[in-house]
Design a protein around this nucleic acid. Sequence first.
DNA 1: TTTATAAATTTGTATATACAATAATTGTGA
DNA 2: TCACAATTATTGTATATACAAATTTATAAA
Lengths: 148, 148
Amino acid sequence: MNVEAHIKTEKPIPLKSRTIIHLSLVQNKINESIHAALKPFDISLQQFNVLRILRGQKGAPANLNTINERMVTKMSNTTRLVDKLIIKDFVARQICEKNRRKVEIFITEKGLVALAEIDSIMSQTEQLILEGFKESELVQLNELLNKL
Amino acid sequence: MNVEAHIKTEKPIPLKSRTIIHLSLVQNKINESIHAALKPFDISLQQFNVLRILRGQKGAPANLNTINERMVTKMSNTTRLVDKLIIKDFVARQICEKNRRKVEIFITEKGLVALAEIDSIMSQTEQLILEGFKESELVQLNELLNKL
DNA sequence: TTTATAAATTTGTATATACAATAATTGTGA
DNA sequence: TCACAATTATTGTATATACAAATTTATAAA
């Protein structure tokens, strides 16, 4: 991915600006791939992440705060995100009896089945996106990103 | 930025998945900083980028296609993005006389003045975001991102 | 017990973005 | 020239996201 070619500019860009732009371009590309991969399943990346979080609970329900904390991209409105998963019957929601302000959200059987399917496609997509990298380069990249 | 801590998970994540997540987290962080920096100016990052593209035209007008090509993040609806800049009187639009299907968009004096102000804040923000990096590390990061 | 404060979520509303359909103009082949 | 296709932009509409206000329940203080 050549930054200058991508944004059709001739003149060189200062290194820091270039890095910021580069990261954005990379993220756009990743998003496109992931979005395309998820499209057949009619589920958004955010919805997918919520399902993964709920599966990670291993049967225990999660409340909205917990979900929000664990999301890669924090959303300002997790209620409606969960609403959409309820419509699909992938999760269920009930009021927490110990503290009736909270809700308990858990993944359904149908959600687990769907997730298993999607998981393997997502994994393939990740492999594809990063196919140009050696293991050592990935380690290096992660180390550099740690500095941010 | 520690990925596992950020998404509150205990178990280690496969390297490729971790890298994808890491890039997303980094992008979120960058977006937050930039968004905060732009907030006082009441302009979106996309709008800012369009202004920069138009200034890069050095007086020559750009049509929508040109703008779209040069944007870091391609938008599906540049017409309305430009509409918003017109409302602010930062750009002007007229029909291209040589080819009346096209439009000619150019930055106004007011737009140039606003852009100059915003520019310096954005530059500061970029410095701040990447302050943890040595020059050689930035070069390395850009090289790694090229592989994507 | 009443009142106030805090916590957790939901709802309202404005803005942003994606995608498809439409409109206007130009180019091209019969 | 005329019909048809291609180009360029705009508009309609659905969905997504951001942010603040409102709602419900719990906790704490007087």
